[in-house]
Amino acid sequence: MKVVNSLKSMKTRHKNCRVIRRKGRVYVINKTNPRFKARQG
């Protein structure tokens, strides 16, 4: 999982990426390709 300042670039890496909020943190996850994970930090 990458920790990035802006998730906009991570969201556009793959068409199935979703932005999800969990416990006050913002994540990008991808169900079809689980390698694409990022957290806004």
Score class of each variant (00 low, 15 high):
40 Q>H: 04
22 R>C: 06
29 I>G: 07
9 S>W: 04
18 R>L: 15
20 I>D: 11
41 G>H: 10
26 V>H: 15
6 S>T: 11
11 K>I: 03
35 R>P: 02
32 T>I: 04
37 K>D: 03
17 C>D: 04
18 R>D: 15
39 R>A: 15
41 G>R: 14
26 V>A: 15
38 A>E: 01
7 L>Y: 01
31 K>W: 09
12 T>Q: 07
27 Y>G: 05
21 R>F: 08
28 V>Q: 01
22 R>H: 08
25 R>G: 04
15 K>H: 14
2 K>E: 09
3 V>G: 00
30 N>L: 05
19 V>P: 01
17 C>W: 00
2 K>S: 05
15 K>T: 13
31 K>N: 14
6 S>I: 14
6 S>F: 13
8 K>W: 02
31 K>C: 07
25 R>D: 09
23 K>A: 13
27 Y>Q: 11
30 N>E: 07
23 K>C: 05
25 R>N: 12
28 V>C: 02
15 K>D: 12
17 C>A: 06
10 M>H: 00
1 M>H: 09
16 N>R: 14
33 N>K: 14
33 N>W: 13
38 A>T: 01
26 V>G: 09
5 N>G: 07
23 K>N: 11
1 M>S: 09
2 K>F: 05
37 K>F: 10
19 V>K: 06
7 L>K: 01
2 K>D: 06
41 G>K: 14
32 T>E: 13
39 R>I: 13
4 V>E: 00
29 I>M: 15
17 C>N: 12
16 N>I: 03
36 F>I: 10
11 K>V: 03
41 G>T: 10
37 K>M: 15
31 K>F: 09
39 R>P: 00
3 V>K: 03
32 T>P: 03
6 S>V: 11
32 T>D: 12
18 R>P: 07
5 N>T: 08
33 N>V: 11
27 Y>N: 08
21 R>H: 09
37 K>E: 09
2 K>V: 05
10 M>N: 01
16 N>S: 15
21 R>I: 11
